[in-house]
Computed example of a mutant assay.
Amino acid sequence: MTISELKKEFIRTFGGAEEELRVFASPGRVNLIGEHTDYNGGYVFPAALTFCTTVIARKRNDDIIRMKATDLPEIVEGSIGTIDQFKDLKWGNYQFGVFAELQNAGYTLTGADLLYHDTTPHGAGLSSSAAIEVSSAIAMASLGGATKIDHIEMAKLSQMAEHNYVGVKCGIMDQFASAMGQKDHAIFLDCKSLEYELIPIQLDGYKLVLSNTNKKHSLGASKYNERRSECERGLEQLKEKLPNITCLGDVSLKDFEAAKDVITDETVLRRVQHVIEEDDRVKRSIEVLKKGDLDAFGQLMSASHRSLRDLYEVSCPELDLLAAEALKIDGVLGSRMTGAGFGGCTVSLVKDSAVDQFISQIGEKYRNTIGYEASFYITEIGDGGREIKE
């Protein structure tokens, strides 16, 4: 739907005039490399997509907050004074969690009518939740009178909403990429310091293609938090030999090799090994991309997938099939799962002339093996969270 169509839908839902409306948007993201490193204080390399959550917003003169999604029939209603009572909503809990964090951080909240339109595929590992969170944060802070929006703070508050309201101890990557993305750039982010560098993505003759398993899954708070706990256990053991480290992101590959014998649990050792080696792959990816060496970057992508499959164990047969079949096609430089895992998408670096073959050949193999369709998206890298002024 266009913004004009969304405004008309808003008026049909909530009444009033279009002149009162403001428009906000924030995108989903694809992580090009650096998976399950963010909550370990490591390095990631995400890019904002053109898939996004758009919010049509209008300030109210009371403390009532009404929200509706364009693809759902119900209007969700609450009030500023009862924000902490909506954790069990099937839709709307992410937004109320963000509003609660804004309030705790001292932002002025106002009643509002909010219409949401999502184009980020849900359950695809492309951070549709972060798109909802960051767009909600920017919209509500702006409606409350904030004239200068600190996008990094919006990302942090959105992350805390997921921790405290939704119950998933996610890292900062998804929200940071959604808030801070820039067209035709990826973000080399140090998740410990939040220092970042925008890296131009020059894929001359190649495309980034997302392949969606369409496997029904959720992030799986239990599995996600289990991996996080295993990494924390490994960190505490490494401190026996590396007493100055505060997170796994502080540990170099060389130091890990010298100290890893203190980790006695084989499962914990595999988890930590993935994180340390993945951080190293991210740093090498930046080096080779700055040189324009797409072949080397593709090899690092594929190595990342093998590590996520074998060491971190967050892949699944559907993701493994998509990644393996991609590498059988001439013109594919690399392929890996992206996102939390157990479903979602792979991201592949595909020569322009091979894209049609990629989609048809892998689509047929997936359908015949798995029993249902995969979906494919040729990605474009877009801008981060913003108010859209016409």
Rank of each mutant, 00 (worst) to 15 (best):
Q202H: 10
H122T: 14
R284L: 10
K148Q: 14
G123N: 13
E266S: 15
L300K: 04
V166C: 11
G384W: 11
E236R: 10
K215D: 02
V314N: 15
A221G: 06
D330V: 12
K215R: 14
N61T: 05
P73W: 09
G92C: 07
I276P: 06
D62T: 07
G234Y: 06
Q357R: 11
V332C: 04
I65D: 09
G363A: 13
P243S: 08
T379G: 08
R22T: 14
E325K: 11
K215Q: 12
L294K: 01
Q202F: 05
A161M: 08
G220R: 07
I245S: 07
F342A: 05
D204V: 02
M67H: 06
G106E: 13
S158D: 03
Q361I: 00
I362A: 13
F342D: 04
A155L: 08
A48H: 02
D310Y: 01
D71W: 06
M1N: 13
A100P: 00
Q273W: 04
D280E: 15
Y372K: 12
A179V: 01
I286Y: 02
E133Q: 12
E232W: 03
H185M: 08
E325W: 00
K291E: 15
G28F: 03
C52T: 05
K241W: 01
K87F: 00
L322M: 09
D118P: 00
L235V: 05
L194M: 10
G363Q: 12
E364W: 03
F96N: 01
T338R: 04
Q95E: 13
F376P: 00
A112E: 09
Q85T: 15
R367D: 12
G167T: 12
G34T: 10
I152H: 01
S218C: 07
G331N: 05
T50C: 13
F14P: 10
G363I: 11
C170F: 00
E101N: 02
A139K: 03
C247E: 08
S26A: 15
H117C: 15
I245F: 09
T108L: 08
V355R: 06
L32R: 04
I370R: 03
A259G: 08
I199D: 02
E133P: 12
K8S: 15
V347T: 11
H122A: 14
E278I: 08
L102D: 09
S360N: 10
A161C: 09
N61E: 14
R60S: 14
K90M: 02
S360R: 11
N61W: 00
Q299R: 14
D84Q: 11
G97V: 07
M154Y: 04
G382N: 06
R281F: 00
Q159I: 05
A146W: 05
D190M: 04
A324N: 13
T108E: 13
S135M: 02
A124G: 05
D356F: 03
T54G: 12
A354G: 11
H36A: 10
I11T: 12
T108N: 15
K290D: 06
I138R: 04
